[in-house]
Design a protein around this nucleic acid. Structure first.
Lengths: 224, 224
DNA sequence: CCTGATTGTCACCGTTTTATAACCGATCAG
DNA sequence: CTGATCGGTTATAAAACGGTGACAATCAGG
């Protein structure tokens, strides 16, 4: 598990690096925004710890750039008393934040929670009702039918719906979980993805039995 | 999703309560430490917003008592410049904190992040009397009847009435909470919305039993 | 570099939802 | 009595939404 730590404060960077290394993670570091982006490209870490206040490019810009190409978990660091920054960070797609000062223990707890949530620790085969999802193989099986291959996005969408099987998941949440941003203008993407997924998993895609629309609310996976 | 707000500052308490109610959460309030603990016992909220400085029992004691029996997310409120309090609060098991003053938007962002972290973002249905509102599904159920689909605005209106079940809510407040503005010319919108909602939830829409008019004042949801 | 698969973008359709307007009856003050 | 206001109702226009097909851009594997 590789992690990128980006902070211009050398001491803090080293402290975080040490903490993570001790915990058994591989760590790469960057001291400013551009470096962080280069490192991100070069190392493709599994998680990013990102300070908001950095020379070169602010944490916002880095976060935005990362979100453009990846859904990797991002934890933002901020100094106390800049709550407005936090709101912006979370809206830009950051997954969590920490306010300085924080204890190494807190940092580790947050990181573990985040990894758990991102499902990077357990790749348990998800199933509900007649739907069985094999994440490693990128396939679904409906009932006893032949498994169907899914694309990356289709898999993510179905994974989210499956995790909340029987309950409606709002379009906003799906947008965040699948693409990593909440630009509500991007409804079209979801429309298309749902359409394509239905072609694959529904007996009659025109009258969905599994992936149903909750008009005005979102979509839900129906299980008996 | 039920939330407990404990703060001795009445104005702030109401402000927070209003913010959370508007966001669709059910809110219970307490003005001091002992009351907070009683409410916690009686209502078993899903999240607690806790001021550190309160008469009766300090926020610390309340937090500690809560942590003894529950892992419910706790957000502490503190005034700026009392950093040592924060450290203590976090060590006592608080999950997050906010420094006064803060914006409602910030509070909401934090709460959502916290709920996400705790994996509790699925809200339980909101209910009063025979009316059960499922916010995720955008549906109401009256008694044991078939659930009825609601539109976005109908849902918001009913949510507000339900949050104040048994009490009249003024037209002005409804306008603000549903549409976000108080242009008194827009009373027509409310008239329409009430009409449409009655068609959906009343047995005989011409003689409303549930969504009754308080002439000259507003509307109220009658529950037995 | 080429090729097929995947993903993003656009345009269009029919339906649902929301906004706007007009009309009706009841009530009440002048 | 008259005119104004209020709440309810009906009708209609405007906007938003969801579904679909076509096609362009991008990505991944050979």
């Amino acid at each position: 598990m590789k992690m990128l730590v980006a902070d211009d404060d050398r001491d803090l960077r080293e402290l975080i690096g040490f903490t993570l290394t001790q915990a058994g993670y591989l760590v790469v570091k960057a001291g400013d925004g551009p470096a962080a982006l280069r490192m991100f490209e070069a190392e493709s870490p599994d998680l990013v710890v990102l300070d908001i206040n950095m020379p070169g490019a602010s944490g916002f810009q880095v976060c935005e750039a990362i979100r453009k190409r990846s859904r990797v978990p991002v934890i933002m660091l901020t100094v106390r008393g800049e709550e407005e920054d936090l709101v912006r960070a979370l809206e830009l797609g950051a997954d969590d934040y920490l306010t300085k000062p924080f204890s190494p223990r807190t940092l580790l707890a947050r990181i573990k929670a985040l990894l758990r949530r991102a499902g990077m620790e357990n790749s348990a085969p998800l199933a509900a009702g007649r739907v069985t999802l094999d994440i490693d193989e990128h396939t679904v099986r409906i009932g006893t039918a032949q498994p169907v291959r899914l694309t990356k996005l289709e898999l993510r969408l179905l994974q989210m719906l499956l995790a909340n099987a029987g309950h409606t998941v709002s379009t906003d949440r799906l947008l965040i979980q699948v693409w990593g941003h909440r630009n509500s203008a991007d409804r079209q993407l979801l429309k298309q993805l749902v359409h394509r997924l239905r072609q694959k998993i529904e007996v009659d895609p025109a009258t969905p039995q599994l992936l149903q629309t909750a008009s005005g609310a979102g979509y839900k996976l129906v299980v008996e």
